[in-house]
């Protein structure tokens, strides 16, 4: 129990640090982001709006500490200021849509990749030396050797451009309004297919190989021989004894991959003009949209922390040895 509490305290501290950094970084940057930014808005914004923008960014001339309190206050209200690139949409709203699409695309593909890769790893380790074991690892090592944006471009060109099986860009058709209709959802799948496939192809091999390798080490353990000698079915030995132990290191890697999900598989999203987090981040950098950047960094760090925290809890459930280490 105290182990879980300790974890929570640790993650809370990490969260505080990320908040402080997120607040300080734009203020520590060399040059004057405010000046450049406001220069671009001269004439386009009313003076009141300019003031509000300055206020929301915290460039009010108050002391740093006062600014920090103001920042925390508005944060607690869910107020991250207004986006510059998508003016006058609030940052929270911009991020919410981006986050949704990223979770949908990258989350789904990382999950699929993890599940398929790990299962294949279990299988080929169990049948090591079989033709499957001989052929799959080199194949996926080959695919994994491509940068995944390159794979994305290849897929886009072959299946989108040449064969015209899948749409070329965006998360859904331009002629559709987001709704829970069958038409819209099937369109979402069609748009997600290529980018998801490129991520899956590029990452599957990693899951498979790492699972295969730990699995083979575990298969050499005495408790596997004992389980076989106990007369348990091979399915039970494979899953309950071998895979159950071998999956633990893979899960740690999965936690980190979730971080990768939220920061958006940047290049894939750009190749497909997919409106996820990564795409937003690029937009924000291009437009020198500091509020949006700040908001994005905050969501990314927070979700990485949350994912790892959840995984730690899962670990406590899955590995009894962590429970007593407290």
């Amino acid at each position: 129990m105290s182990y879980i509490l300790k974890r929570f305290v640790l993650y809370f501290l990490a969260f505080c640090v990320s908040l402080i950094l997120n607040f300080l970084l734009p203020r520590l940057m060399p040059g004057d982001p405010v000046g450049t930014m406001f220069a671009r808005f001269k004439g386009r914004l009313s003076p009141e709006a300019m003031d509000a923008l300055k206020q929301s960014l915290g460039f009010s001339g108050d002391s740093l500490l006062d600014q920090f309190w103001a920042y925390l206050h508005s944060l607690s209200q869910g107020d991250l200021g207004l986006s510059v690139a998508y003016f006058p949409t609030p940052v929270t709203e911009v991020i919410a849509t981006g986050l949704w699409w990223t979770l949908w695309l990258a989350g789904l593909s990382v999950l699929i990749s993890f599940i398929i890769g790990t299962s294949l790893g279990i299988l080929i380790a169990w049948r090591r030396g079989s033709w499957l074991d001989q052929s799959l690892p080199p194949l996926f090592a080959f695919l994994g050797a491509f940068p995944y944006f390159w794979l994305a471009m290849l897929l886009l060109w072959v299946f989108g451009f040449q064969l015209d099986w899948f749409p070329l860009r965006h998360a859904y058709g331009d002629d559709l309004e987001p709704s829970w209709s069958w038409l819209f959802i099937s369109d979402m799948f069609r748009h997600a297919a290529l980018p998801a496939l490129s991520i899956i192809l590029a990452t599957l091999g990693g899951w498979m190989l790492s699972m295969r390798n730990t699995m083979i080490t575990v298969l050499g353990e005495d408790y596997i021989s004992l389980a076989q000698a106990k007369g348990l079915s091979s399915k039970q030995v494979m899953l309950r004894y071998a895979a159950r132990n071998a999956i633990l290191p893979n899960l740690t890697a999965f936690g980190m991959a979730i971080g990768f999900v939220v920061s958006g598989s940047l290049l894939t999203e750009i190749v497909f003009s997919y409106p996820g987090q990564g795409y937003l981040l690029v937009q924000a950098v291009r437009a020198q949209d500091y509020p949006l950047m700040q908001g994005l960094f905050l969501t990314i760090t927070t979700s990485v922390l949350c994912a790892n925290c959840l995984l730690d809890l899962l670990y406590v459930l899955l590995d009894p040895r962590t429970r007593s280490s407290s």
Binding site: Y223, Q228, G231
Partner: peptide, 20 residues
């Protein structure tokens, strides 16, 4: 296996599944 012929393995340290 086990009902008629069972095994006490070498190094009991690793003979039990650590997660069960």
């Amino acid at each position: 296996r086990w009902s008629a012929l069972s095994l006490v393995p070498q190094s009991a340290m690793n003979a039990l599944n650590p997660v069960l």
